[in-house]
Design a binder for these strands. Sequence first.
DNA 1: TGACTGGATTATGAATTCATAATTCTTTAT
DNA 2: ATAAAGAATTATGAATTCATAATCCAGTCA
Lengths: 219, 219
Amino acid sequence: MNLSKPIARPSLHEELVDRVRELIIEGELEPGTKIPEKELCENFGVSRTPMREALKVLANEGLAVLEPNRGAWVSTVTMEELEETFPVLAALERLGGELACVNGTDTQIAFVRERHDDMVRHFKARDRQPYFKANQDIHDGILRAAANPVLSQHHRVLASRAKRARFLANISDARWSQAVDEHEDIIAALEARDGVKLGQILSEHLMNKFAALKERVDG
Amino acid sequence: MNLSKPIARPSLHEELVDRVRELIIEGELEPGTKIPEKELCENFGVSRTPMREALKVLANEGLAVLEPNRGAWVSTVTMEELEETFPVLAALERLGGELACVNGTDTQIAFVRERHDDMVRHFKARDRQPYFKANQDIHDGILRAAANPVLSQHHRVLASRAKRARFLANISDARWSQAVDEHEDIIAALEARDGVKLGQILSEHLMNKFAALKERVDG
DNA sequence: TGACTGGATTATGAATTCATAATTCTTTAT
DNA sequence: ATAAAGAATTATGAATTCATAATCCAGTCA
């Protein structure tokens, strides 16, 4: 008989936080628009109480904005906000790289290598979707190898804000191949367990990505 | 007639988040103990709804833990958690130092200098409370000079977790004077606007503080 | 026509109510 | 006396209700 864990029934509000967060990140609820509280309650089949609890949490994460007596709105993604977010995210990426080289298991590093090779294949075939997926897995894998839940949590919150800049996906060919080059350095530093170097590359990698984004927007 | 801002009446839950957060940080609600929801409601004169909303937010910040059907508890401060928190905080401190040198106004830097001189005076007089206050003001001042709200917010959340390690205040004489020495380097780098150096010192300063803490605990 | 007023409608914030899970207390059996 | 079972109590999670603020809309007047 397995006593290891009680039956976990996550409370409604927790479930709602995840679901609504996903709606915002995926853009189904568009930045700047009103969050249709009633409609969401009906769709999810819950009352307003847990939904409002969830909205408060999302507001605290910066994905929603609560206007007193006027309801909840999806926070806007401004360039100004991205200018603030990316450097912080880069700082956390750097730490993630440093820690991954110290704490990562060989298995974890091997996994990142696998996904790296996959990614390069997808790049050569110019398969965007699988490329982005592999790319995501690589960065997630490094963060997991860093083995620091506090770091992961804060990274997740910030990444969710950054991810909402839809145009991030509109990558130019020049930037795309530059990114792949950078990834060669990333995997090399990781396998050499050169933490300082990996951290630096990851940080620069992200800031380059941001620079490319800016060029697209106001260039 | 002043139309610049509408009458801001913060909602109950926001007020409660701040108040209860303070209770937890200041240790009035002790780590590991149950949060007396009903009692708090009575003390603050509010119903359970806004209080529960606040508790969800605090749980999301890591200050409380919600156990399904068993209520809210003040999260414990374990050495393991601190081992995870401090490096992240150090990474943010580093960024804060770098940005302060770029974005800080001369006035802001002059303010930090003032508080630095105050702090040194308090150190010489061995006045602990004013020393800690000046120290706090210095670090807050640098962060404000960095002018990055996203950074500030995440720093605040992490600092609140670290701050709960009460024994941080039990500083040894040796560590105390070492800390003051480090602060001389901090103010020098800030006034020279040497961001890389300031970031590095701030990061090391914090990790030294943590090392001293660890020595006290398991040394 | 177009701006203003005041009532009707709706949405929001918060209190209250309700069903159920957890805990405590009492009783019973060994 | 102790342990187990079951009833009573309490606390929790969520739905509902209620007061009020915001919005909408028709009617009025310039």
